[in-house]
């Protein structure tokens, strides 16, 4: 795709455009999916802080495995769940880099729980964007560690039975108990107001890294209309009526405040 340049007429001012940190590559996400919004918020934070030239992103396994295509910055793809260990290696090797990982719930809160918890406990100075849509998207809608009680997935066809598979993992609440993390927060992007709140949270999580404050994680509740088997508008309601009941929004830990 080629960049479209539009000349701004005299007396006019450009107030909205594509973030510079985003490439021209079109997103590969399904209609109604929240990855695109979250991805843009990250790009806006990179632009605002002027850190595009020193940022390294870590793409996970899952629907956002192609994340590296969407940004104009260095990128690496990590094995499933290992992003926080890879980020640790990158940042320790070169502390001048701004490192962020982008991980789903299966990646961060199931197979990568140990890497996540220990990176947080060490207070590693990088930024984690944790997208919690309560389901495995790429593999076809299986139960996630954050799948809600009663929620139907292809591996809980009768709905998640807590007697058999236990309860969802509230990983942000768990991480907030640790001494080292600088910032642990849960946000949502289901409406314009919450998009703005999430934008501020992501910006803060990156600014913390610039200021050397240590581990910052922004959990973002998201939808997966395809695997929820719902139209996008109905999936938005799922966030407010179901997900937010189990995963309340707000800051869980803010150090130095």
């Amino acid at each position: 795709m080629s960049q479209v340049s539009v000349e701004i007429p005299p007396g006019y001012q450009k107030v909205f455009g594509r973030p510079r940190a985003l490439s021209d590559a079109p997103y590969t996400y399904c209609p109604g999916c929240h990855h695109g919004i979250i991805g843009r918020l990250i790009a806006e934070a990179i632009d605002e802080l002027g850190i595009q030239g020193r940022t390294v992103g870590i793409a996970p396994v899952g629907c956002s495995v192609f994340l590296y295509r969407f940004y104009r910055c260095d990128f690496i793809q990590a094995a499933h769940g290992r992003a926080c260990a890879v980020a640790t290696g990158l940042k320790r090797a070169n502390p001048d880099l701004i490192v962020f990982s982008y991980q789903g719930d299966g990646d961060l809160a199931a197979i990568g729980t140990a890497e996540t918890v220990h990176a947080a406990a060490r207070g590693e100075n990088f930024t984690v964007i944790f997208v919690n849509n309560q389901i495995y998207g790429m593999t076809g809608g299986e139960m996630a560690p954050t799948t809600l009680p009663g929620q139907r997935t292809v591996t809980t066809p009768q709905g998640r039975d807590v007697a058999l598979t236990g309860y969802p993992l509230k990983i942000s609440e768990m991480l907030a108990q640790l001494d080292a993390p600088a910032y642990i927060t849960r946000q949502s992007v289901h409406d314009a107001r919450h998009v703005q709140l999430a934008r501020k949270a992501i910006l803060k999580a990156f600014r913390n890294q610039l200021e050397g404050k240590g581990f910052s994680l922004v959990e973002v509740l998201a939808t997966c209309p395809t695997n929820f088997r719902m139209p996008p508008v109905e999936a938005q309601k799922w966030v407010t009526e179901k997900a937010m009941q189990f995963f309340p929004l707000g800051d869980l830990k803010v150090r130095d405040e």
Binding site: V56, I76, G89, R92, A114
Partner: peptide
């Protein structure tokens, strides 16, 4: 750096090697 597991240690190597 003493990692939390061998799995984490080798992935830290992956990150540091990528950093050059």
């Amino acid at each position: 750096l003493q990692a939390e597991s061998e799995v984490a240690a080798i992935n830290m190597v992956y990150g540091a090697a990528a950093a050059g």
